[in-house]
Design a protein around this nucleic acid. Sequence first.
DNA 1: TTTCTAAATTGTAACCGTTCTCATTATGGG
DNA 2: CCCATAATGAGAACGGTTACAATTTAGAAA
Lengths: 123, 123
Amino acid sequence: MTRQRRAVESALAQAEGFCSAQDLHAQLRDAGERVGLATVYAQLRQLTEQGRVDVVRSDAGEALYRQCGEGEHHHHLRCRQCGHVDELHAPAVETWAQEIGVSSGYTALSHSLEVTGLCPNCA
Amino acid sequence: MTRQRRAVESALAQAEGFCSAQDLHAQLRDAGERVGLATVYAQLRQLTEQGRVDVVRSDAGEALYRQCGEGEHHHHLRCRQCGHVDELHAPAVETWAQEIGVSSGYTALSHSLEVTGLCPNCA
DNA sequence: TTTCTAAATTGTAACCGTTCTCATTATGGG
DNA sequence: CCCATAATGAGAACGGTTACAATTTAGAAA
């Protein structure tokens, strides 16, 4: 348990929702914590392997990280054309994902869902 | 409508499920079609903008493409530890995603869903 | 506390998928 | 057939991520 490890976890906890490794690195630098970028990546990989953070990929291909079990979980309805994003809440999908995983013997379940289309303005 | 355009569309149609730009490029090369990698990317971008193909990101950050409206649509249950993937079929989620999009005025709807966890072997 | 060893850290270089550049080639209307 | 316009594509550039190796650090043992 090193100073850097604590710093990364703390930065993740402070961040709301998903943020990239480089965001975290910049945030730590701004906060005066000297942590190497390679270390941020290493910590994030460990945390991911332990199932303590979720990873999704942005459209740009960047990896975005979020602490598991944290606040509001929701999904996105995104326009392919203009990039506009609405939030979706779908309790039925939450329970479905949980149950389908459990029934296959999986644990530490998480999921990601995105609906894409053309919004009224772009159609 | 160029020879290369037809070749890319044809390769996409032949491919089952998602495949990467580089896969398509290799497939075309093997089939004797001379198409530049940059052209494959350009075509895929156009097709994506038109909503004729879906894009998802693999865990490695590669963009994977799939023709819209094509055959079997399904989702994945993936183990975070060993990478094992099971296919999921979820008619209820399909219709939910469709309806939620339509009710927001969206058209040309598509969606992606992935459930992750630790499989029985890795738990 | 001091010493020691294995593990963590980190700057830099490499990697790889993707995008950009721009000279070349092809298309299709007139 | 000609020409203006757009598409093509080899190679360079780019950006996020990972590998590497030298240095530093944590934590146990003495």
